[in-house]
């Protein structure tokens, strides 16, 4: 087993892009885990609240106290990025996890049983797909009221269909394999055939999609925060930091137009690197989960 694991690492190490992806994601995981040490919260009860060092609306450049500078409203950008990593993971894992569970259930049922079950489930999927994604999400958030939890619910509601379709296709393909027939010939009951043979083989082709979505979903959440629909003011969230920099991207008061560069650069960089890491990791993940790579 250990030997196989080393072989996988070797394969990944051979491919510089997936190695870069792996390292980037690992970096963010470490940042998220050690956030309380890297950026010590002043009020441990509300660690996600970014500390403010004043009320002035003019951002302050990087200094010893605020390594990445402060944003509009004097929020510490460094603190926001570190704790924002946790927010990004939280949104990604919750939204994709729930969407995946719904997608798995709908897709597997539709493909395995076929017939009218397939028809009904896929038509429901089509109805959800008919809504433009962002518009649908915004409508739901407006109905529920802003807030991170509501954003996540709204995203789940309009995100599972892609998985349902992918999994349905994948299950349809896997179902035709002789080992599924062999399982039936051995008297294995239907639900065990699904859990033992079909799902493990059907789910891995979509791992790449999941990895890509780990990048996309926090971006979408960031966009919603930017529009003011996401987290409450002061909540550590990359989208909100970008939103704070909206008026400072190009300085309006004459002089150096990029005087407030830090307000946009650091949060954007975090978002870009995070998204890139997951995107590059996709291929590597598929390899990691494929036993055929163990040869």
């Amino acid at each position: 087993m250990m030997e196989g694991f080393l072989k996988i690492l070797k394969k990944i190490a051979k491919n510089p892009t997936s190695l870069a992806g792996l390292l980037l994601v690992l970096f963010f995981v470490i940042v998220a885990i050690f956030a309380p040490i890297i950026a010590h919260p002043e009020y441990p009860d509300t660690p996600y609240q970014m500390p403010q060092s004043g009320w002035s609306s003019i951002p302050q450049p990087p200094s010893w106290q605020n390594p990445f500078g402060t944003s509009e409203g004097q929020y510490d950008i460094y603190y926001g990025i570190i704790w924002g990593t946790r927010t990004a993971f939280k949104i990604g894992i919750v939204v994709i996890g729930l969407a995946l569970i719904i997608g798995l259930f709908v897709g597997t049922m539709a493909a395995y049983f076929g017939g009218w079950i397939d028809e009904v489930l896929m038509r429901i999927t089509d109805i959800f797909l008919a809504f433009p994604f962002l518009v649908g999400v915004i409508v739901i958030i407006t109905m529920l009221g802003p807030g991170l939890t509501h954003v996540m619910w709204a995203l789940v509601l309009f995100y599972w269909m892609g998985y349902a379709r992918l999994i349905r296709g994948s299950v349809l393909e896997v179902k035709e394999n002789d080992y599924v027939m062999a399982g039936r010939a051995l008297g294995t009951p239907g639900y065990k055939i699904i859990t033992r043979h079909i799902l493990p083989n059907a789910i891995f082709p979509i791992i790449i999609q999941v990895s890509m979505d780990m990048a996309t979903i926090p971006l979408t959440a960031a966009a919603l925060s930017f529009l003011g629909l996401g987290s409450p003011v002061g909540y550590a969230d990359w989208g909100q930091l970008v939103s704070f920099s909206r008026n400072w991207i190009i300085s309006s008061s004459g002089g150096n137009p990029f005087a407030y560069w830090y307000t946009i650069t650091f949060p954007s960089l975090a978002i870009i690197l995070y998204a890139m890491g997951w995107n590059l990791l996709g291929d590597a993940l598929r390899d990691i989960f494929d036993p055929r790579m163990l040869v």
């Binding site: 002789d178 027939m181 062999a182 008297g187 033992r196 083989n201 036993p291």
Partner: peptide, 19 residues
């Protein structure tokens, strides 16, 4: 089922690759 068994044609497709 145990009394009536089957051997399949495709030695590649008839064994679950993840088991």
């Amino acid at each position: 089922r145990s009394k009536l068994q089957m051997i399949f044609q495709d030695p590649y497709g008839s064994l679950d690759p993840r088991m």
